[in-house]
């Protein structure tokens, strides 16, 4: 599918923070590159924007590295920068305009063909990916907590720090996200079963 897993060495937080900024950013990219890019993809849902935004994320990390005070883990700090960058991008005029165009194009062709991008086609191949597709279709506020909790294995406390919200809100969103998934899946299966 045009994406191969490159081997990258991984480093621990202390090791990274002892280096100068240039070396540190290289180590950060080796350690967190894949997971940050995947995280960005869950917001962007297309590879072109994912490439651009991921690049921006690492440039920002490099620029702000001296400001990292160690109050949270390096991983949480990197995640919060990545998430903020994604949200900034999605809020931008450029992204809104692009989404509107996509919606209009999709609406115009929806009756004739499925209009799937190659990425969507790949993801739809297996039945086991049905749930993952449903996660990707959730509203962002639910999608992000589910991604961070289940796929990135962050605790609700860490998610709260990363997203700048209370732990209770994270838990509520997780529960609502799960409910929405159940609802979508049962609708898709004809409303007969419940997950």
């Amino acid at each position: 599918m045009g994406h191969s897993k490159a081997f990258h060495p991984t480093y621990d937080e202390d090791e990274i923070l002892q280096q100068d900024n240039t070396r540190a950013i290289e180590m950060i990219m080796d350690t967190y590159g894949d997971e940050i890019k995947r995280l960005v993809y869950t917001y962007m849902k297309n590879t072109a924007d994912t490439d651009d935004v991921t690049q921006e994320v690492f440039v920002t990390i490099y620029q702000k590295l001296n400001m990292f005070q160690g109050k949270s883990s390096l991983k949480s700090w990197i995640y919060s920068i990545a998430i903020n960058k994604c949200k900034d991008y999605l809020r931008s005029w450029h992204a809104r305009n692009k989404r509107l165009k996509e919606k209009l194009t999709h609406a115009a062709h929806s009756s004739e063909n499925t209009n799937e991008t190659p990425e969507e086609y790949y993801m739809n191949q297996t039945e086991s990916n049905q749930l993952l597709n449903q996660v990707m279709d959730l509203p962002i506020k639910y999608r992000e907590v589910i991604t961070l909790f289940y796929f990135k294995e962050l605790s609700t406390k860490e998610i709260g720090q990363v997203l700048g919200m209370k732990e209770a809100t994270v838990r509520t969103r997780l529960a609502r996200g799960r409910d929405k998934l159940k609802e979508c899946l049962s609708q898709e299966r004809g409303g007969a079963s419940h997950g």
Binding site: H3, A6, I25, G33, K37, R38, T54, P118, Y122, F151
Partner: peptide, 19 residues
């Protein structure tokens, strides 16, 4: 599934572009 099927990975080319 998430790790395998999100069709993207951070390549050396990406790394060079950032640097």
């Amino acid at each position: 599934n998430y790790e395998d099927n999100i069709p993207t990975s951070f390549t050396d080319h990406d790394k060079q572009a950032v640097l």
